[in-house]
Write a protein that binds this DNA or RNA. Sequence first.
DNA 1: AATTTGCGAAACTGAATAGTTGCATATATA
DNA 2: TATATATGCAACTATTCAGTTTCGCAAATT
Lengths: 106, 106
Amino acid sequence: MRRDIFQAIADPKRRAIIALIALQSMTPNAIAENFKTSRQSISKHLRILTECELVNQEQQGREIYYSLKIEKMKEIDEWLEQYRKIWETRFDQLDEVLLTIKNKKK
Amino acid sequence: MRRDIFQAIADPKRRAIIALIALQSMTPNAIAENFKTSRQSISKHLRILTECELVNQEQQGREIYYSLKIEKMKEIDEWLEQYRKIWETRFDQLDEVLLTIKNKKK
DNA sequence: AATTTGCGAAACTGAATAGTTGCATATATA
DNA sequence: TATATATGCAACTATTCAGTTTCGCAAATT
């Protein structure tokens, strides 16, 4: 099953889960309490996030704590980089245009 | 139909289309030539990208030129910002640890 | 030892979706 | 005016996927 990080963050619920476990580890039950859905559906999302290597699992007794693998999020940042270059260039160009207009006024 | 930019970039083919039209406007036919798929399937993807306000259309005679709305990509960057803060903080902390080790060696 | 609790996994259902085929429309060209 | 070209759109199919239900296992509690 071809699944990557972009598919992982495509689902709004998964993005919400990511936000929840970004700063603290949480069990599936604790995560599910934040939604209207069942624990099993959260479990499924966690499985997908695990497949994409977006989360860490830590077993403690019969509980499993999930937390965000923040490094993995950098992959999105890296992909975005090529476009960031474009919009920053365009902004610079706009800046230049504004500067030219300003100078003409003088 | 609930569709947002995260769903738009979830599909690898759509990311490829985005990359293609990021720097130059292209017609659906010209885009389709870069893939093994049909023109219609590209048209469908372009429709989705249009719905998500990720592309501009410019009609020229019977041709329609599509280009990337680069500003829209910033939305991803803004969403990523909260996580960037986290990984930068962690990096600083690591930096601090390394510094401490360094100082101890002296 | 029996029961409860936390969890994952399989089977099922309904909805969404990617791709194809076929068609309609508008513009260009002969 | 007849034909070719560029495109969008609707109908159909096969696949994917989110959520539920049910089950089984292992750890905690009684």
